[in-house]
Design a protein around this nucleic acid. Structure first.
Lengths: 253, 253
DNA sequence: GAGTGGTCTAGACCACTAT
DNA sequence: TAGTGGTCTAGACCACTCG
């Protein structure tokens, strides 16, 4: 064990028991940071939960909880009788409730949004069905044009129960709908999505600067909060020539 | 507490300590079954981990582990100071490494597959890059036509390192590629996907019984195993008129 | 056989929510 | 204030993998 200085041995872990952040979470964050910074290289073994817990002055279950959270993220792999290893590279950002705004921002495309329409209307039948509200009850309808580098990328139509959030066009243009919902105290739980394709109508072509009949990606989504209440229904179209859904899946054992 | 017979109280849990199946997993399965059968209705509280652990003769961490696994699945929601509740309906099948074969089978569409091509060839540059193998090294290439009700739905092209599995056309036509890989001892870990759209070429139209220029859904996927090794690279096209990707996302807190 | 993760126990104290 | 989940401990034994 004197021959090689393993990656883990070189790491200094700083755990603060007075912090409100749970110990297992502090440990997980520092392990993840070590992986990001390359201190722990892909394939490196983390080895021996017991030793690690002794070294850190934590109980083994706490150390396990930290490691498990990174396994769930796909960053580490545990194998019985073998050990825990850093996963080999390619794993990053798992599929989340993807927001086009965030997607483009991460890709450095400086997205801008123009709100074309934002008002409260009686729910049409399809929207009422998707949101699980009475037909004709009040819903907020949003139509937005998302651009990157000044070029249209997507046309987004969203419907929300009218009592959920207050319409704020300025905030919508700068931060995106999901962040607004989050800061309005809505905790998203899950969403159903359907991704398809079709050809653009003449109007859609005008809007997105595509020819009539061009290929479009379509996405329909209904999002639910903790309580199972539908909080958003979106029907979006994307220029297939400029946008694709890109994501990572993790296989649950 | 005599006024209402709560759903949970009526359930008989049968835990077998001699079984190789972990106790927390047995409990999770039976709780899940109770939700599926409607014994536990959406909104029902599961309440009180401590009482439940006493009643079952389990420790609280074990009960927690069972509940946590169902929370991770999106079936239950826990809120501090409140309790644990069954999530309100709409949650089901989370996004997994989706296999078109399984998808269609679950939808009752009786899929059939015809292997159009299956051979070993030197890896072309794009395939070599995606699989992380040397250009020109041996890879297995598969071309398959997937049909439902005798009508073409998708054209699937897959590349795999040649040493991974043995080509078995019969098995491929009956069980699908992912099951074959699984039974060959390959444990999938994650995959990167990109979903887009474009218009069909004349050849693609012939193959899929669509007009030239029809909208197609496209999917590119690289799948990795435990060790981070790329085990499959697929470039698929789907008839957008007959197929859409349908899935459920869970938001991780 | 040695070393690893997987499971399980029986407690403890804390933080949050509701009333 | 009572009740809930959230965190944490200090052990124990088992199952699997590898040399």
């Amino acid at each position: 064990m004197t021959s090689t200085a393993s990656g883990l041995a070189a790491i200094h872990f700083a755990l603060d028991r007075t912090s409100p952040v749970p110990l297992y979470h502090q440990l997980a964050q520092q392990l993840e940071a070590a992986v990001e910074r390359g201190v722990l290289a892909p394939g490196d073994r983390l080895g021996n939960e017991v030793d690690l817990s002794v070294r850190l002055g934590l109980s083994r279950p706490t150390v396990r909880q930290a490691i498990q959270s990174l396994v769930d993220k796909g960053l580490l792999v545990r194998r019985r009788g073998v050990g825990t290893q850093v996963v080999h590279s390619q794993v990053r950002r798992p599929l989340k409730l993807s927001s086009l705004h965030d997607d483009l921002e991460e890709a450095g495309q400086h997205p801008t949004t123009r709100v074309l329409r934002g008002e409260t209307v009686p729910a049409p039948p399809d929207v009422a069905a998707a949101l699980g509200v009475g037909e004709g009850s009040e819903v907020t309808v949003l139509e937005r044009l998302r651009c990157a580098h000044g070029v249209p990328v997507a046309f987004l139509v969203n419907h929300l129960p009218a009592d959920l959030i207050r319409l704020d066009t300025a905030a919508l243009e700068s931060t995106g709908l999901y962040r607004m919902m989050r800061s309005a105290g809505i905790t998203l739980h899950s969403a159903r999505q359907s991704v398809g394709a079709r050809r653009a109508t003449a109007e859609e072509g005008d809007l997105l600067q595509e020819a009539e009949g061009a290929a479009l990606l379509t996405m329909r989504r209904t999002a639910y909060d903790d309580t199972g209440r539908a909080v958003e229904y979106g029907t979006h179209i994307y220029r297939a020539s400029r946008y694709a859904f890109d994501f990572q899946l993790l296989v649950r054992p």
